[in-house]
Design a binder for these strands. Sequence first.
DNA 1: GAATTGATGTGAAACAAATCACAAAATATG
DNA 2: CATATTTTGTGATTTGTTTCACATCAATTC
Lengths: 227, 227
Amino acid sequence: MKQITKYVIKNSLKRIFLYRSCLVRLKMMGVEKVFSYTLANETGVTPDQVRKDFSEFGIKGNKRGGYKINELLDIMENLFHRNKDHNIVLIGMGNLGLALSKYSKFVQRNMNIVATFDIDPFKQKIRSDITVYSMSRLKEIIDRFRVKVAILAVPEISAQEVADDLVRHGIKGIVNFAPVLLKVPPDVIINNVNLCDELESVIYYVHKQLKVEGLKNLEILYKDMKY
Amino acid sequence: MKQITKYVIKNSLKRIFLYRSCLVRLKMMGVEKVFSYTLANETGVTPDQVRKDFSEFGIKGNKRGGYKINELLDIMENLFHRNKDHNIVLIGMGNLGLALSKYSKFVQRNMNIVATFDIDPFKQKIRSDITVYSMSRLKEIIDRFRVKVAILAVPEISAQEVADDLVRHGIKGIVNFAPVLLKVPPDVIINNVNLCDELESVIYYVHKQLKVEGLKNLEILYKDMKY
DNA sequence: GAATTGATGTGAAACAAATCACAAAATATG
DNA sequence: CATATTTTGTGATTTGTTTCACATCAATTC
């Protein structure tokens, strides 16, 4: 049964990512230990929140001793399966797809785009350093590399069709850049990234802010904005 | 005073964007009227939620008559200031910046990238159709086009520095693609888009899901065995 | 034109997330 | 070794969000 999976990444998970990137930075600076308030300061949240988040993910520290950065990072690596490599496929080698295929940060985090696909693989091959396959070889590659997660960067008109293919071939998670709500079985995770909405919401809040500043009434705004 | 603005787009606002894109589609199909449950079905939420969201943004329908799509869209256009054009600057013409500069959906929604910037404008000019300015002309362009919102697609190492420049020159909102938490005055809106996190969180949930399904199978197995 | 139907709009209730407050534990101090 | 200090971990409380339930209104039917 296909349906729209209204899937939202939990804020607590987003914050864990935040803490981690902060920990990596601190580690590089030679720091070995953090307290909840260190992390809080660095990430703009409250110390309580840090501890609650850790508790949610089963992360324990040492009373009075804070947290050892190495231990924290180990736990997080495990939590996010970062010890293993993750094979990803990328569908759609337009401007955005091309940029994503070259995005070096994925590799740094053990997420490897093992293959990219496009309806017109020859046209795109010129611009790309890595292999662009035709859509007909999707199943073959997904099977060979045991791919479970895909990035979808195709035009919205073909997004659903491609998503259907992906699901049929065993994909269980999709980061979808097309501005459409994909209908998939309930066991498939969809994470929609809508660039227009991201930009537009900033415009919305900026306008609101400017208006409020005119009224010299910041209270309403702060409530709305969740610092 | 500079600080980390942990800024999160409200879910209700995200849903309003969802409703709108759905309304646009329905309008194109010739539909003139919707009910809360129509929108709910199309967007994977509940009818109550649709009505509550509308109520939050002051949108009223007609008892029994549902909502006229044209009226809804008008209200939303106003709400999001879509009647006016919005001038945006884009900083950083690497792979991602280049793709964003060519992203046609922004223009379709009245968000115009009036200029792009890079520390090495000459190198990037080759690949880009639109003008790439050197960073020294930032203030001039921002002033001339009355720009309030910027897209930041520079390497993380220079993100804070560029953000400081932007704020100094009057930018009030930033969509930040660099994986760093920018420190800005509290009246500046930062919306962080972290592509790695988006991908990684899908991997996290997929793994979790597979684990749970494994457990479910186990349960079924035990049930079947009837002790 | 009274009765019925079908939708909205919104308080109330249930649920979820964030903050508070403090006990518990580990370390430091005298 | 007792006391003070510091920081974690987590129930309790508050705050925020979603769902429920129903009064209200407009259209339709008889």
